[in-house]
Design a protein around this nucleic acid. Sequence first.
DNA 1: CTGAAAGCGCTAACAT
DNA 2: ATGTTAGCGCTTTCAG
Lengths: 342, 342
Amino acid sequence: MADVTLRDVARACGCSVATVSRVLAGTRPVGAETARRVREAAAALGYRPNHAARALRGRATGTVGLVLPQITNPFYPALVRALTHALHAGGRAVLLADCDDDPAAEARHIDDLLSRRVDALLVVPADERRSREAVAAAAARVPLVLLDRGCGPGVADSVAVDNAAGMALVLDHLAAAGRRRVWFVGAGGTASAAAERRAAFAAGALGAEAAGRAVLGDFSVAWGRAAVDRVWDERPDALVCANDLIAIGALQRLQERGADVPGDVAVTGFDDIPMAALSAPGVTTVRQPVAELAAEATRLLARRLDGDAARPSRTIRLAPELVVRGSSGPCRARHTGADAAP
Amino acid sequence: MADVTLRDVARACGCSVATVSRVLAGTRPVGAETARRVREAAAALGYRPNHAARALRGRATGTVGLVLPQITNPFYPALVRALTHALHAGGRAVLLADCDDDPAAEARHIDDLLSRRVDALLVVPADERRSREAVAAAAARVPLVLLDRGCGPGVADSVAVDNAAGMALVLDHLAAAGRRRVWFVGAGGTASAAAERRAAFAAGALGAEAAGRAVLGDFSVAWGRAAVDRVWDERPDALVCANDLIAIGALQRLQERGADVPGDVAVTGFDDIPMAALSAPGVTTVRQPVAELAAEATRLLARRLDGDAARPSRTIRLAPELVVRGSSGPCRARHTGADAAP
DNA sequence: CTGAAAGCGCTAACAT
DNA sequence: ATGTTAGCGCTTTCAG
């Protein structure tokens, strides 16, 4: 069961290691007959190239690092799936690291991945500001693409959903449905998705004073629940949540307090995680184009990998899609209060 | 920005590469003063060991392959998180592969990971039977631990939840609550979790004819919904589902058809995915001990890696925990029919 | 078109 | 305690 090397194959088919290497890598023209013999011998012996040796000799490891802030955030599994499939299709392997939303852990992981000589890095930064240093340093050494969240301007190539456009879709939808007391339930902090979504709400909010109708917490179900208690007395007729987890928490708590959703209050989310379709009513949300996100990210990587590395960084924003579900259905007569009968 | 090698460090501090290597790897005693100088120079130059070279020279890559059937199954993110954290803590990196439930893709990924010289493999096999060949072949080459699902007896070390014990917990709970017309909504196929759970239901079902009260589909929300329509006319007072996704689908469909859960019908799941806590009512389920699963798996790996590789394979079964939520609350008077008033 | 040979960066004998 | 040296398996000049 000892490993079969190029030398073994060369010996078996009576030619040199160089020839075998050339046949198997397809680097240079080789005699047709020789090539056949080599391939046969390699197959017979069960030859498997040693990636470590290849990596040492050449420059590439055929490996890409994927750094996530929190794999348990239900938005990421679909993204991971799309990315790994795209990368595997290109013959690369994926080294995965999860940071638990901790920029220090993120920096350590990036460091470790670099010392493992990944050909490139895909990073969903934990924090727009505090991730910047490690990301910028890494981007100077290998092609690096930021995904889903940014990290300051010009740091690296980046591909993300257009958060502003997504919020605009939501606000238009609610306005068209006659919702007037719209509150934003957002996330604080400096993760770029959080910041962009709350800025977009403020910018797009209906009327001047509406921009002030915002409460901030984090991207969690628990915060969604708490936020309902915070805004309850304001009698909102719509809660625009910064992601689906918040929306699901808000929906639950509203129902516990006896509000009719969507009759009294509409609720919207962002991301379109699987759970969003499964609550009752389903959560109206903004779908992130996960497949396109992954495709664009791998395209950017490929461009860096076999193009000039020095090109200025490029930012790609993908258009999101509004997914209308029950949670933003028709509202009933206004000013009836949350606990009134229909 | 060129890479700093051992030679550079050696030159900078006036000693040999061997000494530097010894200091940095801590393999052999080195003079305290020299060691200090070496470490200083390494830090000053920003030396980073080249894992490819290390892997080529020694035998280990410090890398473990993790092969999953479907990362988008909401049970896995928590498992991936626990595993990657445990492995990173041990200085290893994790190569991730997702198979889309396809044993052929699984075999290809295992093959690729082996040729990348992973030190070990963690595999959640896609199928008990059709994964066996690739898994057995891989287990002959590197330490391999099966997770969450088995792959036939004696193929490799394995750690999983005790599915039979979990089902027993559920059945006891329902019996104690007075449920008598209990149906099993399971998954067909040969994935071992599916097979074990349906066998456990049949074995533990209350009464002889109860064992026949089972319908089989797959591990999905859609199947849970469809299953309700299949068993509706039997007027079950409890649906024991083979996992939480099925349970959530069943719960939804029951409510759509006007059944009261848990008044008319109790619903239970398995796994305790995040969603299970978020439906209304919450889904009573069997919690998989994810942290322990990951801990045991890494312990088994460690044992193989620095122990004798030839030891007979060992199977570890972890006790699950029943999590009681609203979906299995008190039932009301029996034989009233699903649409009767309280 | 093919072979011989020089390393990639590192570790582990083997010397000193 | 430290230095010297021989490769790990592969790709890639450089000769032939």
